[in-house]
Design a protein around this nucleic acid. Structure first.
Lengths: 186, 186
DNA sequence: GTATCCATGTAACCAGTTACATGATTGC
DNA sequence: GCAATCATGTAACTGGTTACATGGATAC
């Protein structure tokens, strides 16, 4: 069984909230789900075309004065149904691949100082990530006061995942740095 | 800049510990780094061939009675050097994509009961993952008593990452379940 | 006699990234 | 005058997965 194309559902998700062009969709993604999902034009445009053929979305060309013409896509009933079917399905376990852990695992011959540097860097990045999440949380809470409680809970849940995993990473770095300092002088 | 082929380094890593065939390498991966890295034959064999051409590894054909012939690969000096160069480099931030979070984000029209079920399942999986890590930790500690302290620390560090993130996921599930129960009857 | 292990490989395919190409408008 | 924004797309490429093909040996 071939891997299902999840980009399709990401785009359908955006179009279930609003009609828009590939460009609009990309912007929306960047400002809302970028902490766990990214898309790039080179993929968005062909997938939109394919979805139009499958009648999951429809296209309307919009001409504005002195602007490049815009292909505005809207989700169809069929599209909405397919999205919901997918959403109802249980989540498949996602294979996890980490370059970081791979490097650590094979670092027996690398100077401990180099490994320590790496962990200091990762620790710093985790701290930054964490504070970005906290900021973003406030933004969501204040900007969406009139959104439904359910949507708010769902959106905060995705954020909360980020917070928990950044915190976990941070703790891991601290523990590891302690362990590495211990073996530094052996 | 094209994405660098990390499978190459995974295979070089294994071959830096031991010479072996594609089959051996796969077995090793499955039993040691499978909690953060996976490889499959369809990728291993062609990459091994390519690496041989680049002189990072050498091949020796081994014939045993009543066995399929075996291509035993060994790492060369050049291969060892390339591996170490890569290991010394700082870790690039890894783009993160989560189908789970994508589904949650778009679940505004999905019954809360369905979402709750998903989280119960994920919680269960996290608990299982966590206990597998704990078992594996004991295994590593007892089985590698005579390994160098450094290697032990490195290996346990990769495991520890898994433990921390499984714990974080568990906590996240519990919090989310509480939140979902609250909005269930709205 | 059946399932699993040992062992290697290819072909088809899909997802996703990067670079390239174009060009007008708006804001500084 | 320059950078950024708006806007769409294609081509080349890479990485990775799955399915297919083969076949003897061993363990139950």
């Amino acid at each position: 069984m071939a891997k299902t194309n999840k980009t399709k559902y990401a785009l359908l998700g955006v179009l279930s909230l609003m009609s828009g062009s590939g460009y609009d969709i990309k912007k929306f993604c960047d400002s809302s789900i970028s902490h766990f999902w990214n898309e790039n034009y080179g993929h968005i445009y062909p997938v939109l075309q394919k979805m139009e053929q499958e009648e999951l979305i429809t296209k309307q060309v919009e001409q504005t004065e002195g602007r490049p013409s815009k292909n505005v896509y809207s989700i169809t009933e069929k599209g909405r149904k397919q999205l919901e079917e997918w959403l109802m399905l249980p989540v498949e376990p996602e294979p996890f691949r980490s370059e970081l852990l791979l490097k650590i695992f094979w670092s027996a011959n690398i100077p401990v100082e180099n490994i320590i540097e790496k962990f200091q860097q990762i620790k710093k990045e985790s701290e930054e990530t964490l504070s970005r999440y906290l900021e973003f949380e406030n933004l969501i809470k204040t900007k969406n006061e009139n959104a439904s409680k359910k949507i708010l809970v769902l959106w905060l849940t995705t954020l909360n995942y980020g917070k928990h995993s950044a915190e976990a990473k941070l703790k891991w770095c601290e523990e590891t740095l302690k362990n590495l300092e211990e073996i530094k002088d052996l």
